[in-house]
Design a protein around this nucleic acid. Structure first.
Lengths: 215, 215
DNA sequence: CACTCCTCGTTACTTTTTTCACAAGAATGA
DNA sequence: TCATTCTTGTGAAAAAAGTAACGAGGAGTG
């Protein structure tokens, strides 16, 4: 039922995790089948957009019946690559790093903090929030031997660029960048920026200009 | 120099904070003037897109010269509503809440954690990470008396919906939702979702499918 | 078995967003 | 002063994304 994935639009891909979350809710409730209407409602999109999004990846439903929840969830997981638990490297065991290490919902999304890296000698060697802490010099070894593809960058702004370059050299595939620093890395490394300040500015505009139009 | 803001595209608005960040870097470096090429390079967009984005809000540059950094930054701040320090309410003083309370860069973006709310009696009344902690019952008073418009929702998933509704009733204007729960609130409240799991899934797709195309 | 109802997947259409290319305008130097 | 050289701002074309409508095809019913 999987298509050869004829280059789906970027917004479509960004909605897949939202569908996934909705499907998990339905599964928890014991629903075996759902409709595009119901699922779209849960995900906060229109039914036709949901159907079109899914159609980029294959045919998952049966006319008149809807979608089998379990199967569709498996399919979405397979598309996203979250069908197995993936190891993540935490770079920077500060406040934010610890918060993420303790962030339970990550596990439900298919990710596990496999190890952490920090410059502080007080942290290296210890297990903090359930995660063992290594010195930065171990980065490459951890990535290679652990087969780690993803990193969370939660170091102070001043250390961001160096840490990112170290990760890139180690062969990391993707970085979730929580620092307010624009990283300049080879295109082979996927970088996703998560800047709380930028997000707040975005809603600040919506509030001041729009006078309260929702997204 | 400000236009009447003829409904700028949403993507344009989302890029403004990025331009803002680039402008601050230039200002720190002591640059008085910059060009659309230089600024676009720093922001990671094309020069024509930058110029078009700015054109939605007015005319800020002079042909042959470029843009005056200080003035353009002031203008962007004015557009975004970050020209003055804005108070933010932190809801949920857990690991993530504390991390954000300590997150220095927020201040540079024009935001200040004015107060926190938490259910735990052990936290209420204390000052944690420089922020005074109040019980949830005080939410409405804090929002009203402090003139607070923005809230950061960092409570456990199970408490998210109730806390969000309390905020909406208190008259909050916007919520940055760090919980993996889809909030259903009146359209008058701007909600921005920040779900680490969803972000990881997004890059997971990019890595597995794209084989490494950057965003 | 025939009929109706329901829901998917797809196609055509509309809107939004991006890209490209160029005219207008300001500074510089002879 | 005048030509030259930049660089902006903008309008048109192209691309991307979203919306709506429709046909196809099972499921349930009598």
């Amino acid at each position: 039922m999987r298509k050869a994935c004829e280059n789906p639009p970027k917004p479509t891909v960004e909605r897949l995790p939202i569908y996934r979350r909705a499907l998990e809710i339905l599964l928890d409730e014991g629903c075996e089948y759902t409709s595009s209407c119901e699922l779209a409602e849960l995900a906060g999109v229109t039914a036709s957009r949901l159907r079109k999004d899914l159609s980029f990846f294959g045919r998952f439903g049966t006319a008149g019946m809807g979608y089998p929840v379990r199967e569709l969830l498996d399919a979405v997981n397979s598309i996203l690559g979250t069908d197995r638990l993936r190891d993540v490297l935490l770079v920077g065991m500060g406040n934010l790093g610890r918060a993420i290490a303790n962030h339970a919902p990550l596990r439900k999304c298919g990710f596990r903090i496999a190890a952490a890296v920090d410059v502080s000698p007080a942290k290296v060697g210890r297990v903090i929030c359930g995660v063992r802490c290594y010195p930065p010099s171990e980065t490459a070894r951890l990535v290679r031997e652990g087969g780690i593809e993803f990193a969370l960058l939660t170091v102070p702004p001043g250390a961001a660029r160096e840490a990112a370059e170290r990760l890139a050299e180690a062969g990391i595939k993707a970085i979730l960048n929580f620092t307010p620093v624009h990283l300049r890395l080879p295109r082979s490394v996927v970088v996703e920026e998560v800047d709380f300040g930028i997000l707040l500015q975005k809603v600040a505009f919506a509030v001041t200009q729009g006078g309260g139009e929702n997204a």
